[in-house]
Amino acid sequence: MRRLVIALLVLVGLFIAVDYGAAALAESAVSRQMRDQIGLVDDPSVRINGFPFLTQAISGQYSSVDVEATHIRVGELQELGVRAQLRDVTAPLPMLLGSGPKSLSVKAVEGTVQIPASDVERLVPGIEKLRIENVDDYALEQVVVDEGADKSLRTIDPENAVRLVGTASMLGEKAEVSVIAVLELVDGQARITPRDIRLGGSDADPLPPAVQRTLQQQFTLRIDPGALPLAATPTKLRAVGGALEISGYADDLTLGGNAVSATG
């Protein structure tokens, strides 16, 4: 019995090793395909989800594939993150591992571009150590009630709001600047419109109108991170994880060569 158990454990170990090895080969093939598809310089990170891999490979049907790349440059932006989540992918294993042309059918794609604080900082003159923070209803109410901000801030949807915090140089002195702004998605680009600006922290007194106008111009931005991966249509802009994130969806795609086409 002991020998049988040992033999079974060895077989299980061999199966897992073969499964992971085959998955790694397939992920490498998909990575090369995605590099050309998304127009990257280097191969992105690819993960084929689900275990065991071999049962998916035999059928050629994969429930979920995640593709991710970082440090992408677009114009003045240098640290963009790109992510694509592919769902219900059809790709026969011989085709994936073969040397010929690759073609993948994808039922649904969620594409995402993340703009980190370091890239936003590059677009705001005179600002250092910029942070991107989320804002909730309580924070908006507190600014209005306790700090005397414009009452119209109460009408902002927190999902469409952001707080930008950094260090500004004013008259030879450095001070913390806190900006509550509205986020809008316009033609696939991120538009940032300041609504409340404080020097010395979020609980500081309101600024004189002239200073407020100057800083509002400084923080009014329109950021173009380029197209979303795999022809996804941008639908949402939000602050998440210390970055600005534009995301969207595409359905029924065929990926082959350097082209993306709709199958529906």
Score class of each variant (00 low, 15 high):
P125T: 03
P208I: 07
T55Q: 04
D137C: 00
T233L: 06
A84Y: 06
M34Q: 00
G200Q: 02
S28T: 15
H71L: 03
R3T: 12
Q189P: 02
Y20K: 13
V177C: 05
G75N: 04
F15E: 07
A91E: 03
R2D: 03
L221F: 11
E141F: 13
Y249A: 09
R35I: 11
V46H: 08
V240E: 14
L207C: 11
L171F: 12
T233I: 09
V65A: 11
K174A: 06
L25P: 12
V5D: 06
L86R: 04
F51S: 08
Q61M: 05
E79D: 15
D252M: 08
V162A: 10
P101C: 03
G100Q: 08
A190N: 12
T112Q: 13
L25H: 13
D43W: 03
N258T: 15
L80R: 04
V67A: 05
L130C: 11
D224M: 08
Q37M: 15
R195H: 08
G200N: 02
V18I: 14
Q212K: 01
P44F: 01
E27S: 13
P94L: 07
E79T: 14
E76I: 00
L230Q: 08
E79H: 15
E159I: 06
Q216R: 05
A29Q: 07
V67G: 05
E173R: 14
L215D: 03
R35T: 14
P52D: 03
P94I: 11
G50M: 01
A250C: 02
G226Y: 01
G257W: 04
S152I: 08
V182G: 02
F51A: 09
A227K: 14
I156A: 07
L153M: 10
V67W: 02
T90Q: 15
G39D: 15
R222V: 15
D119Y: 08
V10S: 05
P225Q: 01
Q216T: 12
V106R: 09
Q217G: 15
T112M: 11
Q218Y: 02
E27I: 11
Q37A: 15
F53N: 04
G81F: 05
S247A: 14
Q33T: 08
D205P: 06
E147I: 00
I132Y: 06
K102Q: 13
D252N: 14
S103P: 06
E27W: 10
T220Y: 04
L96V: 13
L221M: 10
R47V: 10
F53W: 04
G226A: 14
Q212Y: 00
L8P: 00
L185H: 08
R122M: 06
S178V: 00
